[in-house]
Design a protein around this nucleic acid. Sequence first.
DNA 1: TTTAGCACTCTAAGCTTGAGAGTGCTAAAG
DNA 2: CTTTAGCACTCTCAAGCTTAGAGTGCTAAA
Lengths: 344, 344
Amino acid sequence: MMLDERKIKILAAVVHDYIATAEPIGSRTIARKYRIGISPATIRNEMADLEEQGYLHQPHTSAGRVPSHKGYRYYVDFLMPIKKLSAAEQALIRSIFNRRVNELEELVKEAARVISNLTSYTTLTLGPQLKSSHLKYIQVNRIDETRGLLLMVTNYGTVSHNIIDMPPTISDSDLERITNILNDNLSGKTISEINSDIMETIKTEMIEYDEILNILLEILIENLEEDAESGNVVSTGSSKMLDYPEFRDVEKAKNFFALLEQHDLITKALKSSSKPNAINVTIGVENPLTELQDFSIVTSNIIVDGKDLGVFGILGPTRMEYSKVVSILEQVTNYLVKTLSTML
Amino acid sequence: MMLDERKIKILAAVVHDYIATAEPIGSRTIARKYRIGISPATIRNEMADLEEQGYLHQPHTSAGRVPSHKGYRYYVDFLMPIKKLSAAEQALIRSIFNRRVNELEELVKEAARVISNLTSYTTLTLGPQLKSSHLKYIQVNRIDETRGLLLMVTNYGTVSHNIIDMPPTISDSDLERITNILNDNLSGKTISEINSDIMETIKTEMIEYDEILNILLEILIENLEEDAESGNVVSTGSSKMLDYPEFRDVEKAKNFFALLEQHDLITKALKSSSKPNAINVTIGVENPLTELQDFSIVTSNIIVDGKDLGVFGILGPTRMEYSKVVSILEQVTNYLVKTLSTML
DNA sequence: TTTAGCACTCTAAGCTTGAGAGTGCTAAAG
DNA sequence: CTTTAGCACTCTCAAGCTTAGAGTGCTAAA
């Protein structure tokens, strides 16, 4: 990557301007706006070089230049200024974490909303994988003659409840016993460890409750599978994307919304951002999933005490305000990790 | 509403054709496609009459006619054929209700998804109003040293949980006592009845748990208020709307998505469809909310045993396949009511 | 009362044109 | 050797013009 000083300046100018305007940038514009001290003609020569090296791209012969994904990559890796957030932005982010919120899910939802408001891009969140979480607390209750409630709390603070059929023959003291035994045997286990073996041992211990145990096992497995295939992805602020000229064409907009509905793809995309506790930027065609190659995605993997609590992702056009997005995501991640480590 | 036979035929033809094509219909088209047995010239005269009476409308002098909201209204009230659903559609609807589902919420979500798939319009759902539901079961648990879980089940089968701070000084037997007293005093009450008076009496009964009772009261009120102002609205299948020519303009699409995010408006719109257990059709400007006057909305209020369980709404362009939508919604409502009356 | 005929209107699509932005190349200047 | 001015060239976009087509309303005849 040997780019000399001048080429760097020009590349930076093109990327910066294109992010701001979404219009191809010409040599004259750069000379005028970015006072590099050389004439448009020279800039033209440099730009021709940059194009040959793959950093820029020309939509058509007489148009200005647009950054290629390689250009963005260089910008993100080496040139991107660290964007200082405004006081208002800072305050908004802090405000999420000031209120005492006890539920992970709610906190994440709030954070996603704020990120979308600040960036005007779509925020994706992938909750903690049930598979890797372990049960902290289980309870079985009766709520009326025929039905009961199975309650599970994981170490990540996620609560799930399922209404289940419960034969009227089971008494309250039975339930207490079941609850106790379930807790003794299951709490501390990850959900994927709760396989039929463990259930078998429980069943031998509680042979008289065979029926209800079968139901419980079924629900556990169902929850697990549902989670594994499509994750618990949520997207926030998708309508904001319609403001960008990239989506002026309804066909494009439709593709985008269709994409958001493919939770399996989104899950894959979010998971594949690998480095833990770092901000990851994937630009356009760098994404292995072809459906996402028109977009860029910036992700942050939230890890607290070695526990993988999920992923935040910001999805936008390749022409994305990377520096702002990265700053905001960094900031939110930090706060989140700090808050969660006291919460868990 | 004195329209003679011939005018009715013409109006029906215009509405029918416009719903199918989204293009203004001319006299020749009607003569050709709907063989009414009169010439285009005569049709023109009749159409001029219909326009004068407000049933049709002409986008510009040399264009065909388009139904006005009055035209749609006449069609819906008097002309609309009862659309028989295809076997496949029937089967799809039935399939939702065949699986044994215990949670209202899940059932509703499934139903909404199917409706959207069948109609390609957006389905809105408004869950039961917490305000009018009553508590069936309350429980307070400890999940770790500092936190506990407040669990509420309403008579509608909706479950809500909140993680709360819980001072370590409170023992398990304390919790049991609290749970019992809460159940004794609160179950059977609607949430809006649970005002500070009742809580005061509980507090005197349990003077030693003042701190935690305050927290609980706060959460109850919070839940109630949140519900009252924005309801628990969910919209499904919104991206499908981009297929309609009405939204070819991105500006329109943006408005639509922005509208969907205004849950208070949607709640109002769904609630104002008054007649219980009947299908309600609100066409364009008939809607008191100006933001919704570009759309039509077909709603059905789900009432079981006198309990208002919520509202289904199908939101689409005024040029909507009313007969299909009404049939589907009718069908789903029937199944839903039947299923729920065994469930509750 | 219905219909054929016709002049008229309006839109949408296609075509032309010119302005504007930008380029690459060449040759001169530094 | 590098930079720059100059210039011919290219391409797009918007504006204006034209035309085909669809549809109307009116009139007069059936």
